[in-house]
Amino acid sequence: MSRLAFWRQRAATAAPGGRRLLVPFTDGELDPVVLEAAIRIAKVWEATLVPAYLMVTPLDFELDAPLQKQVARAMPLLEAVEHAGLRADLAVDARVETGRSATHALQRLWDAERFDRIVVPAPTTRGYGFTPKELQWILMHAPYETLILRPDPELDAHALEVVVG
């Protein structure tokens, strides 16, 4: 690749206004198979990977209140997901979004920012991922192309750290 072609490609992928692939997750875990798939899609599509931790804030708190327990779960996971994306040479632009429910947080996120595609993890047997009801809501309300990825049943029992180290 010529130097000029490299910078053109880089400008197309990493510059403001490039494609953005949103991967929302919640509950302190992201299925590794879903993450791998999202990374592959982002690479093929030359998109910035936007992993977004959706934090559910109880009604008693202000929406953006610092909730130590949740933050302590979210930050290492977000770091791990970001590392996985960076190891694949992807541009990563991580987010934390709060809401009264996972779908409310998602709504707030796409109200505030532009994305081009969403990759959503389906529920795992261990109870992580979006519930069928949430998935239905996402399919009905997402303003972008949406992919729902099911976890590999054999890998379902493993935690994210098995894949991202």
Binding site: P16, M55, D64, A65, P66, L67, T98, R114
Partner: peptide, 20 residues
């Protein structure tokens, strides 16, 4: 700020708020 920068700033504010 450009629109992209404004979006980044808003996201940073949200993260800052959540992290105290």
């Amino acid at each position: 700020p450009t629109p992209e920068e404004a979006t980044q700033l808003a996201a940073l504010r949200r993260l800052a708020s959540v992290l105290g």
